[in-house]
Each structure stands twice: as structure tokens, then as C-alpha cells.
């Protein structure tokens, strides 16, 4: 028997156990003189032992279990039927309704805020909303430039020159 044959037998045994007596003896003889197959066989045997150890005997459940299951099913029956697709439809409808309400609120707030801002400041607010800070700064200082002391003096000098 070659190592390959032995491993093929062992693989089957690991699952269903060994049956043929002659095969078993041949494998046993091979394992005695082949450390490599012996090592592999040990692994498979351990795997088999551990898996088999998790087997449990067929037992009767506690008799009260049937009554508990039946009671739970009865409670379930008392609830209104709410099949899967109805649940999906209800969920989608609630999402759509929420989105519509949020949208209406946003538009309303936007209109209200715009109405509260003086017309001269709307450009400034728009620039801020668009994160165009240089434009916002220009708009803030645009009016102040006219009242600047230098610009007033400059305008007076220009005016006196013209009158001459």
C-alpha cells in the first residue's frame, strides 16, 4: 500500500469510519513504518474524535416546551398580519414623506430668511453662502470706502481744482 492509498483510506475513514478488515490491517502496517503518514493520520483521527465528541443523544424536550411554543404562536396570531412587502412599502412611504417634509421646510426657511435681509445685504449673504469670502469682504468694505477720510479729502481737493 502506498502513502497515497493510505491517505485516501484515512480520509474516508475520518468521515465514515473503517469497515474492511484487510484494508484496516494494511493501513495499520503502513502507519507503523511511515512517520509522515502517521503524523497525518493523527491529525485526521483527532479531527474525527473531536467532531464525534460533539454528537448528542436524541432526547425528549421538556414537555412544557410544546405548550410554550403553542402559546407563542397564538400570541403571534393575535398580532395584525404585516407581511414583508407591506412592511417594505410602509417603510418606503415613510421615507418619502419625511424627505418631502424636510424639503418643504428647507425651502420655506430659505424664503423667510431672504425676506428678512435688507435688499442691500442680500448679495453679501449670497456671497457668504457660496463661500466666496473675498466677494463678501469687498461688499462689506464697499460702503466704508466712500466715507474714508483720505477719499473725502481727495474728493474735496479734486473739487477745488475743478472750480478753479
Amino acid at each position: 500500500m502506498t502513502c497515497r492509498d493510505v491517505r485516501r483510506h484515512l480520509m474516508a475513514w475520518a468521515r465514515i469510519g473503517a469497515e474492511d478488515r484487510a484494508e484496516r490491517e494494511a493501513v495499520r502496517a503502513h502507519l507503523r513504518q511511515c512517520p509522515s503518514c502517521e503524523e497525518e493520520a493523527r491529525l485526521w483521527a483527532l479531527r474525527r474524535m473531536l467532531l464525534q465528541a460533539t454528537r448528542t443523544d436524541v432526547v425528549d424536550p421538556d414537555p412544557s416546551l410544546y405548550a410554550r411554543v403553542s402559546a407563542q404562536v397564538r400570541r403571534q396570531r393575535a398580532r395584525p398580519v404585516f407581511p414583508f412587502w407591506e412592511a417594505v412599502r410602509a417603510f418606503s412611504a415613510s421615507i418619502a414623506l419625511t424627505a418631502t417634509i424636510v424639503l418643504i421646510l428647507l425651502v420655506g426657511v430659505n424664503i423667510y430668511v431672504h425676506q428678512q435681509i435688507p435688499s442691500g445685504r442680500r448679495d453679501f449673504v449670497s456671497a457668504l453662502m457660496e463661500r466666496n469670502f473675498s466677494e463678501a469682504e469687498r461688499l462689506v468694505f464697499a460702503g466704508e470706502e466712500e466715507l474714508n477720510q483720505d477719499s473725502v479729502l481727495g474728493a474735496l481737493v479734486a473739487e477745488s481744482r475743478e472750480s478753479r
Binding site: 475513514w13 493501513v27 502507519l31 503524523e39 493520520a41 493523527r42 483521527a45 483527532l46 474524535m49
Partner: peptide
């Protein structure tokens, strides 16, 4: 378990 020959474990 590991002290036994592999065949015996099977």
C-alpha cells in the same frame, strides 16, 4: 489521546 498511535485514535 496524542500519546496513542494514530490508528488506535481512529
Amino acid at each position: 489521546a496524542l500519546a496513542k498511535p494514530a490508528f488506535e485514535l481512529f
